[in-house]
């Protein structure tokens, strides 16, 4: 039987932060395991000045969210075709199938080999990943919309494309929004790994330099910043979904 949780996620996280502060700020300020909170806070300045946080962060964020936006727009435009059986869906299905067995990292390696340190390649890579997984998800969700919801519409002389655009697309939107949250995390991981290998602009490059300089406090600060960003995006998506997609 499902047990109700006694403590919320926030209580546990605040507890862990307090434990970290007490343990590493007051009891074990000098150690090689975890930096003390005050040092981590100070490392934010290092990230801004030495690691060029703003430009690198902007590069990663724009690659992730631009690719996500482009994918959603393309899926909206191509939706009747994506949900049908044609050459486009065959390609998407094949790419999705391949991604189950071939890690995306190999694709990124090839891209980096062909176009080293290219920012455009990063965008193309992110868009390709985003579009493939989104369109596969959209197709899957569309196929699972109850047939009864649309079976009556043809008798009103409403075409299959109109049904897909006006009913099926609308019906899958709440679940597609849920998928955005997963997609966000997945894209962050993919793009950061790409940048880590590519050595161009981006959070991945910052992380590579941090490890190169053994800068543990900057690493923890980056982790905190990325977590806050991903969490905020998820909350924004949940807010939009709850406000506008009540069905």
């Amino acid at each position: 039987m499902y047990k109700l949780r006694k403590y919320s996620n926030w209580v546990i996280i605040i507890g862990l932060l307090l434990l970290w502060t007490i343990l590493f700020e007051l009891i074990l300020p000098v150690n090689s395991v975890f930096p003390k909170p005050s040092i981590v806070m100070q490392s934010f300045n290092d990230l801004l000045n030495k690691y060029f946080l703003i430009w690198n962060f902007l590069s990663t964020v724009s690659a992730i969210y631009t690719s996500m936006f482009i994918s959603v727009v393309f899926i909206w435009i191509l939706f009747p075709h994506i949900t049908g059986t044609n050459f486009l869906t065959d390609i998407v299905m094949s790419l999705e199938w391949s991604s189950r067995y071939i890690p995306g990292i190999f694709l990124s390696m090839l891209f980096i080999y062909w176009f080293p340190k290219s920012e455009v390649t990063k965008f193309i890579f992110a868009t390709l990943i985003s579009f493939t997984s989104f369109s596969y998800r959209a197709k899957y969700l569309a196929e699972n919309v109850p047939k009864e919801l649309t079976s009556w519409l043809p008798s009103f002389e409403i075409s299959s494309n109109q049904i897909k655009r006006n009913v099926v697309w609308k019906m899958i939107q709440p679940k597609l929004f849920d998928y955005l949250i997963k997609q966000n995390l997945y894209l962050w991981a993919s793009v950061v790994i790409f940048e880590y290998m590519n050595l161009g602009l981006g959070v991945g490059t910052i992380l590579r330099n941090i490890l190169l300089y053994n800068d543990l406090s900057a690493l923890v600060m980056m982790l905190i910043l990325i977590t806050i960003f991903i969490y905020s995006f998820s909350q924004l998506i949940k807010f939009i979904k709850n406000k506008y997609y009540f069905w």
Binding site: P146, E148, L149, S151, W152, P154, S155, F156, E157
Partner: peptide, 13 residues
């Protein structure tokens, strides 16, 4: 399909 004959399914419409 024609607007002269309309189909009403059992549910979910």
């Amino acid at each position: 399909p024609s607007r002269k004959i309309i189909y009403i399914p059992e549910k979910h419409n």
